[in-house]
């Protein structure tokens, strides 16, 4: 089964705030974690409402983000979307971690033991 993952971006990283991200990475993952397709979408301006709308229209299954407002989180989960929030790290590394299974809320994903996002 193909899973769609949406990650709000701030340059190469997972955006620290869902509502302030103007770019998103949209990825289609195979059941085994292989990346089928990925694309970056640009929003005209940062907006939590627009992002929610995009999550729904793109039929994403999972949202991986940094900080997210409680109301927005509740709305997305109510719509049946899995939200993994408080995640810090480069989007590519975070995606790999998620594809491998087991990415949790609050996780700081580093590429090695010493790395901290700059």
């Amino acid at each position: 089964m193909i899973r769609k993952v949406l990650i709000p971006l701030s340059e190469e990283e997972v955006a620290p705030r869902f509502d302030l991200a103007a770019e998103v990475l949209l990825v289609e993952l195979e059941a085994d974690g292989r990346i089928l397709q990925e694309k970056v979408l640009i929003l005209p301006e940062p907006s939590a409402e627009r992002l929610c709308h995009m999550v729904m229209t793109e039929r994403a299954h999972t949202v991986i983000c940094g900080g997210i407002d409680g109301e927005v989180f509740d709305y997305l989960t109510w719509k049946g979307i899995t939200v993994i929030d408080d995640v810090i790290g480069l989007a590519s590394a975070v995606l790999r971690r998620h594809a491998a299974g087991g990415l949790k809320s609050g996780e700081i994903v580093t590429t090695d033991n010493s790395f901290r996002p700059s």
């Binding site: 620290p16 302030l20 940094g66 810090i88 901290r116 996002p117």
Partner: peptide, 19 residues
């Protein structure tokens, strides 16, 4: 302990940090 070494914007997540 968790915050140590992280970029300020990931700890604070304030609007001003990001904009």
């Amino acid at each position: 302990a968790t915050a140590q070494g992280l970029a300020c914007r990931h700890v604070m997540r304030s609007r001003a940090c990001l904009t």
